[in-house]
């Protein structure tokens, strides 16, 4: 079966955040607890997360925010260059997934449709997957004691539906489907944009982290959108760091052998 994935065409994202809300609605996610505080005279908690960073108040992905729309204002002083870029970000369902590689308990698994998801009943909350993700996707939730992230709507896609975010996206910026089909669409759209003069347009995710099942069309360099240009899957470096460590261990062992060799006796004997 072909891997399922999403193609996020940021050139037609209007920054409406419907994807963020649809995601929370379908997946039963609450408001992010850190965004709310008690207020005198009110029985409920009131939002206090104004950021001042363009229209982005949720700031990043978290255990309750599986989607996050970035707002990038690119204006020079006389406004002759004026651009406001939007891009909806989520788990990329990497083919070489740092989180999955790091998980010690097989709580993070890949399904037959290629999506990577966290088995909540297995996760022990060691949090090691969190720093292992080069995209800062997976996060810990104090309330469940486990980690959470986008599942690519595992329940929906295994029942013939697309993801909730793609369903809610009013402009088709988030498209769900078979990865090869989506790649064809992405290629065609890139050609179209290049023709219209978007020289910096690029597709992000064909090669990164072994290929991303959720990939992007950006109008500017990936860093502009907060994505590492060359994401390194941490485990790719495992052999080297292990080797250096083993070498150090051998050196220490040799050092010990030398330091504790029974020279005292030799000295004393004559």
């Amino acid at each position: 079966m072909n891997a399922k994935g999403m193609f996020v065409d940021t050139s037609i994202c209007t920054g409406c955040k419907a994807c963020q809300v649809a995601c929370k609605e379908w997946n039963g996610l609450s408001g992010e607890p850190s965004h709310f505080a008690k207020k005198a005279g009110y029985p409920y908690r009131v939002a206090n997360n104004f950021s001042g960073r363009s229209y982005d108040n949720t700031q990043n992905l978290s255990a309750t925010d599986w989607r996050h729309v970035r707002f990038i204002e690119q204006f020079n002083a006389d406004r002759s260059e004026a651009r406001w870029l939007f891009a909806s970000d989520s788990c990329k369902h990497c083919n070489n997934a740092g989180c999955l590689n790091a998980c010690p308990v097989q709580a993070i698994v890949r399904t037959d449709l290629g999506n990577v998801f966290v088995k909540q009943e297995v996760c022990i909350g060691c949090k090691y997957c969190i720093p292992a993700c080069p995209y800062g996707v997976i996060s810990f939730d104090q309330r469940t004691g486990t980690v959470h992230k986008c599942t690519l709507c595992n329940d929906r896609i295994h029942n013939g539906l697309g993801t909730a975010c793609a369903k809610a996206c009013p402009t088709g910026s988030i498209a769900f489907g078979d990865v090869p089909d989506l790649k064809m669409r992405a290629d065609a759209r890139l050609v179209q944009l290049k023709k219209l003069g978007y020289e910096k347009a690029n597709i992000y995710g064909y090669d990164e982290a072994g290929g991303l099942n959720v990939f992007y069309l950006f109008l500017d360099k990936p860093e502009v959108y907060g994505q590492p240009e060359k994401p390194v899957v941490p485990q790719d470096r495992l052999h080297i760091s292990s080797g250096v460590t083993v070498a150090a261990a051998i050196a220490v062992a040799v050092g010990a052998a030398i330091a504790f060799r029974e020279r005292g006796e030799k000295k004393d004997k004559p």
Partner: peptide, 26 residues
């Protein structure tokens, strides 16, 4: 108006999902 809220907010400001998107007057 903004996308994140609807008019005087009765349909949106009571919903944490939308409240956290645009929490405060700016």
């Amino acid at each position: 108006r903004l996308t994140e809220h609807h008019l005087s907010g009765v349909m949106t400001r009571w919903l944490p999902w939308l409240a956290e998107l645009m929490p405060e007057l700016f």
